[in-house]
Structures are given as C-alpha cells and as structure tokens.
Amino acid sequence: MDQRLTPELLLYGYRHGIFPMADPRDGDAVYWFDPDPRAVIPLDAFHVPKSLARLVRKGTFEVVTDRDFEGVMRACADRAETWISEEIIQAYVALHRLGHAHSVECRRHGRLAGGLYGVALGGAFFGESMFHRERDASKVALVHLVERLRRGGFVLLDTQYLTPHLARFGAIEIPRAEYRRRLAAALRIDARWQV
C-alpha cells in the first residue's frame, strides 16, 4: 500500500485486522501486516506474577495515562533497530489527538520510567509497543492497562505477535479466522478508555 499514513487509514486498517510497521532498515517504507496466527491476551486469563503484584501494590511508580503519548512512542522507538519511523510517530500522534490512541505511563520522580501505547477501537485495544528505562516499569504499565480495559468494558487485547515475555502474562496465539471473529464482535462494543 503506497499511501501516506493518516488517522483514517490507520482506523481502516485496524478495523480490518491489519497494522503498519516501517522497514527497520531505512524507515521510509511502511508495510501492512496480518499475522496468522495472531497473539492476544485474554483479559479474563491475564496472569500477574506474585512479585509483580507486590510491586504494583507498593506504588513504586506513579501510573498515568495519555500525559506524554509522543514521548512514550519515541521511547519505544529508541533502540538500535525499530519499526517505529517518524511517519509512524506522526500518524499515531494525530490518532491520539482524535482520542483513539492511548499511552499508559509509569513515572518516578517525575520522569518517564516505562510505558506502552496502543489503539482503542470499540471494545478492542491493539497494543503496539512498550519500553522500560527502569526495571519492571513496562510490566507495571501492562498490569494497569489490563485493569483499565476491564473497567472500560473492553473484550479484546491484541498483542499482534507472541513473545516469551507476553506468554508469561497469559498471551496466546489464535488462528486468523478466530481473531477476525473476535475482532468483529469487539468492534460492536462501545467500550470506554479509563483515565
């Protein structure tokens, strides 16, 4: 697809089960992906290890949402090889301004220690990327994300690909056809992002 990314194009893609990533070698070309199988975290089976639950209760990090969406994106992109190009950042920041893209941020002493961002559409949340500058900060952000999604009436947490890190929290792979069925059902739900 040789179109510049716009919020409208992003929303069209997510509604149809596809998402963009820039070529990590040069960042100029953006490609659309539709993995089969697809990874999701079932919200009712989300697993929080005991040590992480203790850390969350301890309140080591101040957890906020949408305070510095662009900063979270740039922190996620700050690695040797990234699929988050400047075009991707600008498109998602525009989507954030329209109320469809959100960040969960862990802060300590006023500084961004970790976080994640993604796209909310209907009852689906599409997790895009996470980062940490302090140990376990991204994990704490994920716990808070799931809590907010449950409270807001979301039914689908799409993580795109399965990683060992996400598998520890209960992420599973499902066939593309099953993902499409769950996506269609989620898009009919009027969920609310919880601040």
Rank of each mutant, 00 (worst) to 15 (best):
M1T: 15
M1N: 12
Q3C: 12
L5K: 08
L5M: 09
L5I: 10
L5S: 09
T6Q: 01
L9K: 07
L11W: 03
G13C: 01
G13H: 04
H16M: 12
H16K: 12
G17A: 02
G17V: 01
G17E: 00
G17H: 03
I18L: 11
P20T: 06
M21S: 04
M21N: 01
P24A: 07
P24N: 09
D26P: 05
G27H: 15
F33M: 11
P35R: 09
P37S: 06
P37C: 04
I41V: 10
P42H: 09
L43H: 05
L43E: 00
L43W: 06
V48I: 11
P49I: 08
S51H: 12
L55Y: 10
L55G: 07
L55K: 15
T60V: 11
T60S: 12
F61T: 04
V64Y: 07
D66G: 00
D66L: 05
R67H: 12
D68G: 01
F69L: 06
M73N: 05
M73H: 00
R74C: 03
A77T: 14
R79K: 11
E81D: 12
S85N: 15
S85Q: 15
E87Y: 11
E87H: 14
A91P: 00
A91Y: 01
G99T: 03
G99E: 06
H100Q: 01
A101R: 09
S103D: 10
V104Y: 04
E105D: 12
C106G: 07
H109G: 13
H109L: 15
L112Y: 04
G114I: 03
V119P: 04
L121K: 08
G122T: 11
G123D: 08
G123I: 08
M130G: 02
M130V: 02
M130D: 05
M130T: 03
R133V: 10
E134H: 14
R135Q: 15
K139S: 13
V140L: 01
L142E: 08
L145K: 10
L145Y: 10
L145P: 07
V146P: 00
E147V: 03
R150E: 10
R150Y: 09
R151M: 13
R151Q: 15
G152P: 04
F154K: 09
F154G: 00
L156V: 03
L157E: 05
P164A: 11
H165A: 00
A167E: 04
F169D: 02
G170A: 02
I172T: 13
E173F: 06
R176P: 04
R176T: 04
R180Y: 05
L183M: 02
A185P: 05
A185F: 01
R188I: 00
R188A: 13
I189S: 07
I189R: 14
I189Y: 03
R192W: 07
R192V: 14
R192I: 11
V195F: 02
